[in-house]
Nucleic acid binder design. Sequence first.
DNA 1: GCCCTCTGTGTAAACGATTACATATTTGGG
DNA 2: CCCAAATATGTAATCGTTTACACAGAGGGC
Lengths: 353, 353
Amino acid sequence: MVTIKDVAREAKMSVATVSRVLNASGPVSDETQRLIREVAGRMRYVPHSGARSLITSRTETLGVLLPDLYGEFFSEVIRGMDDTAQRNGFHLLISRAYADRHGIETAIRAMRGRVDGVVVMSPDLDAKSLLNLPSTIPVVLLCSVPRGSGIDSLTIQNCRGAREMVTHLTSVGHKRIAIIKGSARNYDAAERFRGYRMALREAGITPDPSLEREGDFTEAAGYAGALKLLALKNRPTAIFAANDSMAIGALSALRQCGMAVPEEMAVAGFDDIPMARYMDPPLSSVHVPICELGARAVELLLHGITHKNDHARRRERVSTKLVIRRSTGGEPAERPPPQTLNGEMVPIRYTQV
Amino acid sequence: MVTIKDVAREAKMSVATVSRVLNASGPVSDETQRLIREVAGRMRYVPHSGARSLITSRTETLGVLLPDLYGEFFSEVIRGMDDTAQRNGFHLLISRAYADRHGIETAIRAMRGRVDGVVVMSPDLDAKSLLNLPSTIPVVLLCSVPRGSGIDSLTIQNCRGAREMVTHLTSVGHKRIAIIKGSARNYDAAERFRGYRMALREAGITPDPSLEREGDFTEAAGYAGALKLLALKNRPTAIFAANDSMAIGALSALRQCGMAVPEEMAVAGFDDIPMARYMDPPLSSVHVPICELGARAVELLLHGITHKNDHARRRERVSTKLVIRRSTGGEPAERPPPQTLNGEMVPIRYTQV
DNA sequence: GCCCTCTGTGTAAACGATTACATATTTGGG
DNA sequence: CCCAAATATGTAATCGTTTACACAGAGGGC
């Protein structure tokens, strides 16, 4: 492997000069610059990042710790992160980790010395335990909020999004609106539930506990929850599921029971996963700009790194957007033909395979 | 940050001994071992990977170069890679790169010194240009086959999978089977087309060029292709799309034209993306074990690394599985209730959000 | 008792970059 | 014409590890 010494020897210059040229640090004559660049290019020299990070104590790498994520969320969040990271000359070291305290700690320790900062996504973890992370490097917490105030965090506008959706339901006349909740320890789930309650209050409806079902973000939970709701003597006329997977499960249950959606029962989800538009009927949902979530997380992290983590702590939220489709009575039978590829109609280039 | 010297001083030992304990290299007395481990743990010492890689010239990190991937493919392939990498004590440095030659070269150079090997996925690239990669590090090519013989590669059993699907179509009586092809320069697409032709030949059917439509793996292409096929005087009775996205587009077109699927027109796809089962009717497809694809790629790469890349070059394929649903006449109206979470019925824990 | 082999430990030289400091040359103001 | 400042380059210390080599003491076979 060719080192800076090889380049220096070949160019008949000292390593210091070569380093100065390549890092644009310090004055070098134009001619020498040209020469060294030419030689370095010809020899395909690339600086050894380990050696560099040893002396500069920067790695130009960001760690990303994700729980077991499926589908679009994973790819989109990484897309946003990678774009922003690359634009700033950073790499991404990605690792999946159990979202419990031990898993996160282990993973972060394993990354020590390899990264300049870490984005940690751990929706299920009560963030308190992250406070005494074994690290002095900047951390940005994704989709949960630390109890203390030592860590930046970025979340989705869950509460607002849920509130808007439920308000939409009340505005088209629904009075008995059920919810299938997300996992109990999940931050997003709690916030979405809060938004649901808030919207009901605002519409002058007193929450009915029998309409609030437990769930865990899986399709099966949505299915089971819907069945339970159908068994009530005093049925709801609308179901708000805390995510799309559960809404899809609910749709299955309703179909099997012969309930017409949205006529007999409206259904709404959250996330606006690509599949949502393909449901029968297409599912109303709350769109989450996942890509931007990732991008913004990296921006926050980079800021923390350049400011040596001594800035005031930030709590940010990315905003959501209501998407009304047929499952709540919006948008009549028309299903957009895929050749019109405008903003909303993202082409589902599902895989390149 | 605490270094090996700090640990040595604290334990009143030399750095060499500390290093020996932590790497289990060389003889150390039991008592000294215990002492050093205790001290290192208490001080939360973690070796600086840069310094280590400088001397050992190993980084314990694998590079992953992916094109613009959407959805399940991305997350699943990384899941498989990360599992295998972690099990072997490796990290994953992930980067998206334009799949052209320059993009790949740039990305690989940027990774030099940071990784011990690279998995490159570049389905659209004619792999010839990868032959003189600016690297001596092991490379595994995913979803394309290098022309020369210098690089390991791992692909999907595209040809076999397509052949099985088309054979299924002929076996239920179809004689005029159309195909909507994938991108012209795409390896997977070419192989799937080859399988299609092969199956037809085996069934004694002579290929009809008017039934072979160009496509590019997008939904829009599937939509357009299906319309073209419907406009033929001598229509096909079945459409095989080279991936699910195009099959979904085709279903849209057929629905808009009032064609009954599968009665008037059978439709089949490839990839078996999660959405496939939710189509109306559920889409027959060729299942690709994406997670295993990633896992196997990393295994190949690790093998190349430990054997210093001087093993015989490998060409492997991961096998596919035919999944027949209603769109080709299989599996009657029943749609599996999501609470039965057996093997085939993977829970769609779509996002944790 | 001598030599050889182990075991346990320490010393110091790499690895490949950055950079403070030193040195040599040029420039320009008075 | 001289001295200070600016420019261009080189020397060498440094970052945190690993590891070849050295060395000391113990044990055993003869």
